[in-house]
Design a protein around this nucleic acid. Structure first.
Length: 547
RNA sequence: UGACCGAUGGUGUAACGGUAGCACUACAGUUUUUGGAGCUGUCUGUCCAGGUUCGAAUCCUGGUCGGUCAACCA
């Protein structure tokens, strides 16, 4: 027994490090034991599978500890952001199955408040207006090994700073002429503490505040304060923000905040083999038309995965399985693929489709007869609905399901052998017809009427084939998606990365096939697990030529 | 050459001083009214060197290796 009175032998589910931090905070009554998280995307692109991990983390943690989660758009850089992205992101979060606390927040909601905070810091002598150029500031910052030098404007008076800051706001200066800086420590070993920029001048149109502002807060100045204003307790972000944490805390300390005090916690972002996860590069793929938009089914975006046929549940399970820790990771994309397969195998409807058809004639089946045979929509689901499949004398089977000279372990159709047609009868191959070049054009079989699916029979077969009645077949275009990239990832950096060297030409194939008529009545976006093909999504919601 | 973060099989992740477990991958077998389905099994792991301890993946010291940081991006 430990101090809590619980047995050490008990099989407690293990907690990840975030859960441990939170449980610790709850135990110690930090922020009254409340858990309030937020998901704070910048609306400058579509969300991808990496964001999905963050979404599942933030919303999942709040759910687990009876807390709440805000959706906040970090829209502090008007030149890169748009309402189009805002809408796409909202849709993706909802589709994943999460509901944020209303209303949706925007960092731009706090521009006035942030301005007041900045004035407060100026009055405390903790911030100043600097006239140096971006280049001068960067140079003055020094290097990680050597201290920076102080700006000549660093020690000017409060009144002058106030006046200058006001002029920045009213738009008197051109972009780059002035900047508001926090007055911290030019010799700090942490580069982000060497008088970081809080505001820069941008004469840009903002998607929400329009032309009201000519100064915009930097991420560091906006983020922690936004967290504070919203009452966020645990501000979860990725590892590259670790050096920013000191600054995050400095701002909060110097604003003398009271009440809920947010805490920044970092975790390792998701990396996937064969998958580009950088928004900048995804934007490049879109802009340079390597793909047809952010929601192209070959993209690792949430909307791309959705169109590809991924289910929200499969992505949530994936996010859970990859775990969360502080070390850099590279998850094998096959884990993601495993998660969809597992979900779809359990839940997706089945339908028979033949992609590379060869005609098969059942010689002893009546010529003008056809019958409807009952089939299960999903054999993995005991409550599965049934569908009726038409059967007739002439059918298509997959060309690869027949071999004239089969090797030993070939259990499908060959001259003289018997197989079952799924949901139908056992047949035996009697002969084949070939064209002048020796290609098989017809396979002739006999069937055994007393072997209809569900009947008792003593005949044993080693294989079962899928098939489609020619007369009833529906011509379908089947889209097969493979991974977009065949190598792990194009070299980092390199503005001019030529994706052509990496793109898998087989990443999208449109194949003509024949399906049973059931497909016709199905809903747009319906997932099917095609027998022997894995799954694909019948995406009737968009026109095929869009791809 | 500074500061910070990290290191457990091929890939991830657990074990919180007491049997190194789980999942994915790979491979093998088995099975089947189609499998990229099911079932069974196998392979591979605590970065190194010291120390503390009855006992170390875990604690300490020192190394090594990897990552991050010098946008008026987020």
């Amino acid at each position: 027994m430990d101090k809590d009175g619980t047995s050490a032998m008990e099989n407690k589910p293990s907690l990840n490090f975030l859960e441990q931090i939170i449980e610790n905070d709850i135990k110690n009554g930090v922020n009254e034991g409340r858990v309030y998280t937020r998901f704070p995307p910048e609306p400058n692109g579509f969300l991808h599978i990496g964001h999905a991990k963050s979404i599942c983390l933030n919303f999942g943690l709040a759910q687990k500890y009876q807390g709440k989660t805000n959706l906040r758009f970090d829209d502090t850089n008007p030149t890169k952001e748009s309402t189009e992205y805002v809408n796409a992101i909202r849709q993706d979060v909802q589709w994943l199955g999460f509901q944020w606390e209303e209303p949706i927040w925007y960092a731009s909601d706090y521009f006035d408040q942030l301005y007041e905070f900045a004035v407060y810091l100026i009055k405390k002598g903790k911030a100043y207006v600097c006239h140096m150029t971006a280049e001068e500031i960067s140079k003055g910052r020094g290097t990680p090994q050597t201290p920076g030098v102080e700006s000549p404007w660093r020690n000017r008076g409060v009144e002058e700073n106030l006046l200058e800051f006001e002029r920045m706001r009213t738009g008197e200066y051109k972009e780059g002429e002035r900047v508001l800086r926090a007055k911290i420590d030019m010799a700090s070993p942490n580069m982000w503490m060497r008088d970081p920029v809080m505001y820069r001048i941008m004469h840009a149109h903002h998607h929400r505040t329009e032309n009201k502002w000519s100064i915009y807060p930097m991420y560091d100045w906006a983020h922690g304060q936004s967290d504070y204003i919203e009452g966020i307790t645990h501000s979860i972000c990725t590892l590259e923000f670790i050096p920013h944490r000191q600054l995050y805390d400095w701002f909060l300390d110097n604003l003398d905040v009271k009440g809920i005090r947010p805490k920044q916690i970092e975790f390792a972002r998701l990396n996937l083999t064969y998958t580009i996860m950088s928004k900048r590069k995804l934007l490049q793929l879109v802009e340079q038309k390597f793909v047809n938009g952010w929601d192209d089914p070959r993209m690792p975006t949430i909307s791309g995965l959705r169109r590809r046929g991924y289910t929200p549940a499969s992505i949530r399970v994936f996010a859970d399985k990859v775990g969360v820790a502080k070390r850099e990771n590279l998850i094998d994309v096959s884990l993601l693929e495993f998660c969809v397969r597992e979900d779809l195998n359990k839940n997706a409807s089945r339908v028979m489709t033949v992609l590379d058809p060869v005609k098969l004639v059942i010689d002893n089946y009546p010529e003008n007869l056809s019958e409807m045979l009952p089939a299960i929509l999903n054999p993995e689901d005991p409550d599965s609905e049934k569908r009726m499949v038409p059967f007739s004398r002439e059918i298509y089977i997959e060309r690869e399901d027949f071999m004239e000279n089969p090797p030993k372990k070939f259990f499908r159709l060959a001259p003289g052998t018997e197989v079952r047609l799924k949901y139908a009868f056992i047949i035996r191959c009697e002969s084949v017809v070939k064209d002048s070049e020796g290609n098989i054009t017809e396979i002739h079989c006999v069937y055994f009427p007393d072997t209809k699916s569900g009947m008792q029979t003593t005949r044993k077969v080693k294989g079962t084939l899928h098939w489609v009645s020619i007369e009833h077949a529906l011509e379908t275009e089947v889209r097969l998606y493979d991974r977009l990239f065949t190598v792990p990832e194009p070299e980092n950096g390199a503005e001019g990365t030529d994706f052509r060297d990496y793109i898998n030409p087989e990443s999208l194939k449109v194949v003509k096939g024949y399906s049973e008529p059931h497909v016709q009545t199905s809903a747009p976006g319906q997932n099917y697990q095609f027998e022997r093909l894995g799954y694909f999504c019948v995406d009737k919601g968009s026109s095929p030529d869009k791809l």
